[in-house]
Design a binder for these strands. Structure first.
Lengths: 124, 124
DNA sequence: CTACGTGCAAAAAGTTTGCAATCGC
DNA sequence: GCGATTGCAAACTTTTTGCACGTAG
């Protein structure tokens, strides 16, 4: 069904070399180095396809553009850290406790998203 | 400096009657009932002003439009619940524990945002 | 060879800005 | 009256879509 094209390969390579969540613009900037006239629309279309196929997963940070990361990273349940100085988003392991106590009566929690904000080791 | 206009009053009233985070479109839909030809740009400008003045605070939910809530609600540290069925966002009390254990060495955490996803009591 | 994927340009959707008219203080 | 605020339209930004061509399988 889904074909391996030069464009798709370059986009997947961008994720592998970056090792952190990337926005559509960052992905385009990285992949365009290999495919000169890569269209931004191709990036958007490919991202949607990769997400549908479970290759990548979306990462949302408040007041930031959308990002994506490789799903095999996302499979291992984790959260994110956003550095307010350099803007980078890092993966962090672990998971908070006490979520059940926060859940209102009658509500069912299926997932949760957590982002820590502050300064990373380089910017601190 | 900042003037109380009919438009601003209607926008603040929308928050008070809703009692939950609202998106710019929801706010406009609510306030336009009182001010017939209220412009959407006025809503955006007023939201920015209210945020600058500390009257409202932004609420971000992954894959959702931006929302705002009254700051006196936000002052009391809390988090949010997003119902995947009705789309409503609820305020919830409490705070998870164990965040420090998740923080990588050398990183400093200043804030955190948490959203629980699932079904609310009406939709469960 | 066939139809999925691409590039480009145009269209949508969401947000911001310029400007003359309006209205709070 | 003065200047902050508004409505409208136009500009911007980000994402999606239409269409003819290219190319993977």
């Amino acid at each position: 069904m889904s074909r391996m094209t030069r464009q798709r390969a370059a986009i997947e390579a961008a994720f592998k070399t970056a090792g952190r969540p990337l926005s559509p613009t960052e992905i385009h900037a990285s992949a365009v180095k290999q495919i000169e006239n890569l269209g931004l629309s191709t990036v958007y279309r490919t991202l949607r396809r990769l997400e549908d196929e479970g290759v990548i997963a979306p990462v949302t940070v408040p007041d930031e553009p959308p990002r994506y990361e490789l799903a095999h990273v996302a499979e291992h349940h984790h959260h994110h850290f956003h550095c307010r100085k350099c803007g980078r988003v890092y993966d962090i392991d672990g998971c908070p406790t006490g979520l059940k106590k926060m859940t209102p009566p009658g509500f069912t929690v299926e997932e949760h998203t957590l982002v820590l904000h502050g300064l990373c080791d380089r910017c601190g």
